[in-house]
Each structure stands twice: as C-alpha cells, then as structure tokens.
C-alpha cells in the first residue's frame, strides 16, 4: 500500500488493484478541518446493506470480515469495517459512489458532502480508472 496525502489527510492506496482505504481517524480529521463538526462519524451515515452478493473482504486493520454498505441513494457497494476502523473502496468505486451521491445528496447532508468534495478533489475522479 502506498500512502497518499493531500491537504493533510491520508489515504492508503493499492497501486496493484487501485483500491483505496479511508481510515476512520482520517475521516474524522477531515470533518474537523472542514468545519461542520457534526460529531457523527461518517461511517454511521453509510448504511449497511444485507442484500449484497459480493464476497466479503477482511478489514486491513482488525482482520474481521467487513460489512457491505452504501451511501444513501447510491448503487455502489462499499466495504465497511464493523468496528469502525475505516472504509474500503474497490477500484472505481470512488468515482462511482461519489459521482452519484454528490448529485443526489448535495445540500441534504453536510458530512457526506465534505467527504465527497475532498475525495473528488484529492483523487480527481475523471482519471481514476486509468
């Protein structure tokens, strides 16, 4: 894993599979720096879905199987650590998850928007798949 830092926030990035790990501590830092201290961890806003058919991944921090989850209104399935260690995005899920949620949730949820804005800017979603 290569560590990627932008605006003092770190992401772990796998150059082999293009997956991205967003650590819970970093999510909190981002929210703190961004201003709107909603207090609620973003992980709670990403809802666990039960009907996902993807195989379960293991959390890179605690090695427990992760829950499948999605951003409200989104169709992309993410992996979320049940112990609140962080979120895993498969290759391309970043762009997909936040392209749609940026449109739909704009204005309705400050917390998610801060993150989508940051991720969009940090990873420049237009090129992510390359």
């Amino acid at each position: 894993m290569v560590v990627f830092e932008y605006r003092q926030i770190e992401l772990d990035y796998c150059p082999g599979c293009f997956g991205v790990w967003f650590d819970e501590g970093e999510v909190e830092l981002l929210l703190e720096t961004a201003g709107p201290a909603s207090g609620d961890a973003v992980l709670k806003l990403i809802v666990v879905t039960r009907d996902a058919t993807e195989t379960k991944r293991r959390c890179p921090v605690c090695d427990k199987p992760m829950d499948k989850a999605s951003v409200p209104g989104g169709k992309v399935i993410l992996d979320r650590c049940p112990h609140g260690n962080g979120i895993w995005f498969d290759a391309g899920e970043f762009a997909a998850a936040f392209a749609e949620s940026a449109g739909e949730t704009a204005g309705q949820d400050g917390t998610i928007r801060v993150i989508t804005d940051f991720l969009g800017e940090a990873l420049d979603k237009r090129h992510e798949e390359t």
Binding site: V2, V3, F4, P15, A122, L123, D124
Partner: peptide, 22 residues
C-alpha cells in the same frame, strides 16, 4: 499538485503516478 506520496521501502515498482494530477 500539493499531494504527497509515501512509499514503503520494499515496494517493487520504480514509478509512481500521483493519484491526483497523474
């Protein structure tokens, strides 16, 4: 572009693409 890449010492690749500005 303002981003920083931190690469482990045992990493095999010699080239790294910035995630942000490519």
């Amino acid at each position: 572009c303002g981003a920083v890449l931190k690469v482990p010492p045992d990493f095999k690749r010699r080239e790294f693409k910035c995630l942000r500005c490519k």
